[in-house]
Amino acid sequence: MPRSLQSVALLAAITLVLGGCASTGGMSPEPSPQAQTMPAEAQRSGKAQKLWQVFERYRGTPYEYGGTSAQGFDCSGFIVTAFREGLGQQLPRTTSQMLALGDVVHPGQIQPGDVVFFQIGGKEQHAGIYMGGDRFVHASTSSGVIQSSISGYYWQGRLTEARRFD
């Protein structure tokens, strides 16, 4: 096989592997230090405070496809770990399984602790935990476990739905 064809095949394989929980590298920059504080709305929610404590413990942990530990997380792996460690609650492992369960939350009624889903590449492939004040915590492919703005450059217009797991 010619070298250029090998490169295309390798790139295609990498794209398929990373597509399961995608957030495009370079498009979700690390938030500024002042944006790293817990949103006031989350401070009023016991559920969000517990999830924030887990976020603080794993902040900066690198992205790893299929990861569910301090060595690396994918987006759903971080959510599952946060709910298990923070709330003692077992959630489904993948974003598609999460989308099939939980209570649907209408856009105007999203609360801290709800799981938010984003459309990347034509389908819901990325998820995070809403913290209030336009902020959510998640495992980004480009920056690992971080806090981001739902209305930020990359995420604006990509939020598709939310689920509540009580």
Rank of each mutant, 00 (worst) to 15 (best):
R93K: 07
Q97C: 03
K123V: 15
M98T: 11
A100S: 14
Q119G: 01
M98D: 00
L99K: 13
Q125D: 06
G108V: 12
V105Q: 04
V104F: 00
G113I: 05
H106E: 15
F117M: 12
I120K: 06
H126G: 02
V116L: 12
Q109C: 04
G108Q: 14
G128W: 01
G108F: 03
V105E: 10
G128T: 15
G128P: 04
M131W: 12
E124T: 09
M98S: 08
G122I: 11
L101I: 04
T94P: 05
G122M: 03
V105G: 01
G121A: 07
D114H: 01
Q125L: 05
R93Y: 12
G122Y: 08
M98Q: 13
P92F: 04
L99I: 15
I120H: 02
D114Y: 02
I129V: 11
K123Q: 13
G102V: 06
Y130I: 07
I110R: 15
T94E: 03
H126V: 14
M131C: 09
M98E: 02
D114F: 00
D134H: 01
G121R: 00
V104P: 07
G122N: 09
I110M: 10
H126A: 05
G122P: 13
F117K: 12
G121W: 00
V115Y: 04
G102P: 03
R93D: 11
Q119E: 02
P92W: 03
G102I: 05
G113T: 09
Q109G: 05
R93S: 10
T95Y: 08
I110A: 08
A100G: 09
F117H: 13
F118W: 11
A100D: 06
L99D: 11
H106W: 06
L101P: 00
Q119M: 04
G133Q: 05
K123N: 09
P112W: 00
T95G: 10
I110E: 08
L99G: 15
S96I: 10
T95V: 14
G108L: 13
A127F: 01
I120D: 12
F118S: 14
E124M: 06
P107V: 12
L99T: 12
E124F: 00
G128I: 11
G128A: 09
A127Q: 01
G113F: 03
G113H: 02
P107D: 13
H126E: 09
L101M: 13
V105D: 07
T95Q: 07
P107K: 09
D134C: 13
Q97A: 14
V104G: 03
D114L: 03
L101C: 11
